Amino acid sequence: MLWEDRDVRFDITPQQMKMRSGERIIDKLESIEDTKGNSGDRGRLIITNLRLLWHSLSLPRVSLSVGLNCIINITTKTVNSKLKGLTEALYILTKANNTRFEFIFTNLVPGTPRLFTSVMGVYKAYTSSKMYRELKLRGAIIQNKQLRILPQEQIFSRVNGVWNLSSDQGNLGTFVITNVRLVWFANMNELFNISLPFLQISSVKVRESKFGMALVIESSEASGGYVLGFRIDPLEKLHEVHKEISALYSVYSQCPVFGVEFVLQDKPPPENEQLDLPDKDETEIDESVSETADVLAAYLADGNHHDREPVFSSELGLAIEKLKEGYTLQTLWEVIPS
């Protein structure tokens, strides 16, 4: 399952830091501070076509993985860095699993704007290439009975006389099979169509239906869990199409095409795509202490963005802002959770 672009994860394992199939490093920046959660800690920021990776240079287990699909907004913000003082930093607001997180990255090397240009440029390239990764219904993808080709797309087959079995009477249309997706559109109405990337396909089968033998394609839960049925006559042609789609799906699974293309104008000489993580110092890792709550708290963003009402605290003898549910004065003052 593809999680890299759809999750925000903290302190990930070295295995999760590695590039998955189809993921590639677009830029790598040294001397980047995670000012929000690890102020004062020098680290490395890796920008891929799916996510932003940051890890501490002194403690590699201190790391972040921020999926590009989770990003809500990217802007700049003036912050006070422990290592650089008052400076302009990159501010990123994200949302994952109904929780908002804030990330602030500060470039500790003066005169290098690549932190801003690389992250913003790659994010724009990601958002503009959703057709490679997301199921689309009734989109403007057909013009004069021809598929509008994506930049990295190649058409392999065009199959006429394909019945879409989504309604009782069926609709006659055309299949277009490419290296990244399946497209079907109705002959009588081009806007009645579906674009299904291989990335969102969970299974491709031939089985019996009330219309006879049909090609049945199930989409992933992330794309809605659709069950799509298509009838192709004669039966030999149906099996040929099924075989071709299955073969292309298998090839795609080995090396997915995510569609994110971005070229840096001032990129330094190419490096290998290894993250070059320093060796872990196992003596520094205490598995008996769970720091997950503290790590998340450092990055949590208040989605309401307003002050809470003041209440009287009998413990302090003062009026204070009303605490969030689940918090007490004692837990807020504790350095080490009890």
Results as ranks from 00 to 15, higher is better:
Glu4Asn: 03
Asp5Asn: 08
Asp7Trp: 15
Asp7Phe: 11
Ile12Pro: 05
Gln15Cys: 11
Arg20Gly: 14
Ser21Asn: 15
Ser21Cys: 15
Glu23Cys: 11
Asp27Ala: 12
Glu30Tyr: 10
Glu33Leu: 02
Lys36Met: 08
Gly37Lys: 01
Asn38Gly: 07
Ser39Met: 02
Asn49Cys: 02
Leu52Ala: 08
Leu52Asp: 12
Trp54Leu: 13
Ser58Glu: 13
Leu59Tyr: 10
Pro60Cys: 05
Val62Thr: 02
Val62Asp: 06
Leu64Cys: 06
Leu64Arg: 12
Val66His: 06
Ile71Ser: 11
Ile72Glu: 11
Thr75Asp: 10
Lys77Thr: 10
Lys82Asn: 10
Leu86Glu: 09
Asn98Asp: 09
Asn98Glu: 08
Asn98Met: 10
Arg100Asp: 07
Phe103Val: 05
Ser118Ala: 11
Met120Val: 08
Met120Gly: 14
Arg133Val: 01
Glu134Arg: 06
Lys136Trp: 02
Gly139Ala: 04
Asn144Ile: 14
Leu147Ser: 10
Ile149Ser: 14
Gln154Cys: 10
Ile155Pro: 09
Val159Ile: 15
Ser166Ala: 10
Ser166Asp: 12
Gly170His: 07
Leu172Asp: 05
Asn179Gln: 09
Arg181Lys: 12
Val183His: 05
Asn187Phe: 04
Asn189Phe: 05
Leu199Ser: 12
Ser202Tyr: 02
Glu208Phe: 00
Leu215Pro: 06
Leu228Phe: 02
Gly229Ser: 15
Phe230His: 02
Arg231Met: 14
Asp233Val: 10
Leu238Ala: 00
Glu240Asn: 07
Val241Lys: 02
Leu248Tyr: 00
Pro256Trp: 06
Val257Asn: 15
Val260Trp: 04
Val260Gln: 14
Leu264Trp: 15
Pro269Gly: 13
Pro269Tyr: 13
Pro270Ile: 07
Gln274Gly: 07
Glu284Arg: 00
Glu284Asn: 00
Glu284Thr: 03
Glu284Gln: 06
Ala298Tyr: 07
Ala301Gly: 05
Asn304Pro: 00
Asn304Val: 10
Asp307Thr: 09
Gly317Arg: 06
Ala319Pro: 06
Lys322Tyr: 15
Tyr327Pro: 09
Gln330Ser: 11
Glu334Ser: 15
Val335Met: 14
